[in-house]
Write a protein that binds this DNA or RNA. Sequence first.
DNA 1: GTCTATAGTTAGATAGAC
DNA 2: GTCTATCTAACTATAGAC
Lengths: 205, 205
Amino acid sequence: MVSTIPTKVSFKAQMLLAREDAIIQSVNRLLAEKGFEAMTVDEVAADVGIAKASLYKHFPSKEDLAAAAMVSVMRRAQAFLNALPAEASAMDKLRSVVTWTMGLKLAGEMPSLPSQNSSLRITLMGNTDYMDGLMDVSDRLGAWIEAAQTQGAINPKLPPIAVLYTLYARACDPVLEFLKMGELYSNDEIIALVLSTCFEGLETR
Amino acid sequence: MVSTIPTKVSFKAQMLLAREDAIIQSVNRLLAEKGFEAMTVDEVAADVGIAKASLYKHFPSKEDLAAAAMVSVMRRAQAFLNALPAEASAMDKLRSVVTWTMGLKLAGEMPSLPSQNSSLRITLMGNTDYMDGLMDVSDRLGAWIEAAQTQGAINPKLPPIAVLYTLYARACDPVLEFLKMGELYSNDEIIALVLSTCFEGLETR
DNA sequence: GTCTATAGTTAGATAGAC
DNA sequence: GTCTATCTAACTATAGAC
């Protein structure tokens, strides 16, 4: 039994995962484009190229679709953190992470969820994959923040939690899209500008 | 005719304005609480204490309700700008304005609109009261920004438009609500923290 | 698991009496 | 201008055949 069935099971499982990946990719893009409320399940189904009922066989609700997209982004973030050079300073790592998240946002790959929606919050906080990823990322960023403060790179008077929130907020900063709409600056220039205001502030140094 | 009718007309007009003020106040609060998509017209009607159909006699659509709330906030902003001491430096004025907008947000009086919703954008941009107010406020802030840059207070390398967007963005900064949810800091402390990260940045000076 | 078809609900907007 | 009652459209979710 072990010798005959595995390949077939594995193949089917692979197809299933591939389809779910396609779904998540569509959800991710649509969430970045229009946000959670404006995205409809019909759109997702049409974008993936399957029927809506089939979609509900994979994910039990619209909220779970969004959660899956967030888990996906969280995994990408973890992979990015893992790939950072170990010899870099805590400050450099933090700057790299923020640069990466802003790039994701400008590329239209950062899903945007309303922080108010309660049913979505409940689904997200009940999703252990998402919560574990969030905790892991927060812990690692938190450690770098405290290290940077000890080294005198980040203002030690700021509570680490406030710094963490400030960094997270750059991933959904409306300044990015406003500057992009103006069409005066390239994506790299926009990232450089916002990175500068974030770490160095508006005041002259 | 001129001597007999005016008082009655004026009285009716006054009642109408009072009712519309009450509507706008409800809309403003609900928009701050739940955002545009989550706010329903039924809720607004119930909150004001009138029938939904009556609401539609005053404002032709949900989008126009939100626009009226934005015009109201814009007027308050203009009044705040007018009341700033003329002898204050450009930099002090900018800090005061940002402090004020963050206070409004923390007090639950800052309506939050999705920057993606297109029908809302169209209504807003077709509303001359709103657009005139926005232009006026932007012009005055813009002048202060350039003055502060000339005086060396604000980093002159930053494009004024990027500085303006950055200041506007503080009015809807999720860091404010995150820190408020944590219940570790008072509203004044939160404002001081975000004001510091905004103007002085995260890096040690 | 995928489909078509539809149930069930909500919310924006309107009709028509007063 | 205000009301009750209703329309219409859109959307989430599911039933049931294959």
